[in-house]
């Protein structure tokens, strides 16, 4: 029982971690928090549903095509929403993001109708049994894919020249641009990666629950909470925060009550903000006069 819960909790945690990585990368690069981040996950889940369950596209191909389509949505988001607002007031950006959220949700309502969709289990209901421990293969699959992605992302950012340019842009756009980095391109790339991470989280999450219009919103908000708990801006922090939240949600639902599950992330986050505002890994922020 406990091992099952741990695997389940870690699987949830890795989904949150993928979304949280998208959030933190955008924040580090541009200093903005994209509250519509979770919508990329919903969109990914719906598109994957249409491709794989309705049109019969093979799972791996459907997965890749979905991520590509959502990446395109990420580019559009950068062009239409982020760019015109780049130097506007923070509140204006927030309200604009609400507009994006409404649009995404309504678009999905029009295309997929407000009916919860059930994504087919690619493992066809098989279970992994080791001794008396029963594990859902989708959970193992999620953990595997997420780990591979994280390692690749790490290698990409730290071992490739494009990754170095992206990091330079995140550090200081002006200096990066003086060093000959095409800052605009790097910003678009950041949005693309962040959208892809959201889409992947959505597709991985889809078989666990119904796909609904609110699905991504919940994943996105939990991802924010995770990054705050981890220490905002810290990538290892976001991952740890996300895993912690996944485990607490699953164990809380099993041993305490599932009624307040949607609030667990928020309560934990508020507790951290009150008692350890720098999070698990973050540094204390101070304002210079």
């Amino acid at each position: 029982m406990v091992i099952q819960l741990i695997v389940n909790g870690l699987a949830m945690g890795f989904i949150y971690a993928l979304a949280a990585l998208g959030v933190v990368m955008l924040y580090n690069a541009l200093g903005i928090v994209n509250f519509a981040q979770g919508e990329f996950a919903t969109l990914g889940a719906f598109i994957a549903y249409s491709l794989i369950a309705e049109m019969g596209v093979p799972y791996p191909l459907g997965f890749v095509v979905t991520v590509m389509i959502v990446a395109a949505a990420g580019v559009l988001f950068e062009r239409i929403v982020y760019r015109p607002l780049r130097h506007k007031h923070f509140l204006t950006v927030i309200v604009s993001t609400i507009g994006v959220m409404i649009f995404f949700r309504e678009f999905e309502r029009i295309v997929w109708k407000p009916i919860p969709r059930f994504f087919p289990d690619i493992f066809e209901g098989r279970l992994i049994t080791i001794g008396n421990v029963v594990i859902v293969p989708q959970h193992v699959f999620i953990i595997g894919v997420a780990l591979v992605l994280m390692v690749s992302l790490y290698l990409f950012l730290n071992k490739t020249s494009v990754g170095a340019k992206m990091r330079a842009t995140a550090q200081d756009q002006e200096t990066a641009s003086l060093m000959g980095v095409d800052v605009e391109k790097m910003i678009v790339l950041t949005f693309v990666i962040s959208a892809c991470l959201g889409a992947i989280a959505g597709v991985l999450f889809a078989p666990i629950f119904f796909i609904t219009i609110d699905m991504g919103g919940t994943v996105g908000l939990t991802a924010f909470c995770a990054s705050i708990i981890g220490g905002f801006g810290s990538i290892p922090g976001a991952i740890c925060g996300a895993l912690l939240l996944g485990l607490v949600e699953v164990f809380g639902a099993a041993y305490v009550s599932s009624v307040y599950k949607p609030a667990v992330a928020f309560m934990l986050m508020i507790a951290f903000l009150m008692f350890r505002p720098r999070g698990i890994f973050g540094e204390k922020v101070s304002v210079k006069v």
Binding site: I80, V81, P84, L85, K88, T92, V93, V95, S96, I98, G99, V100, M101, I102, F103, F104, R105, E106, F107, R109, I110
Partner: peptide, 13 residues
């Protein structure tokens, strides 16, 4: 509602 969402984004821009 979808048009409304787009409207909000454009107006804020």
């Amino acid at each position: 509602m979808a048009i409304y969402g787009v409207g909000v984004v454009l107006l804020m821009g």
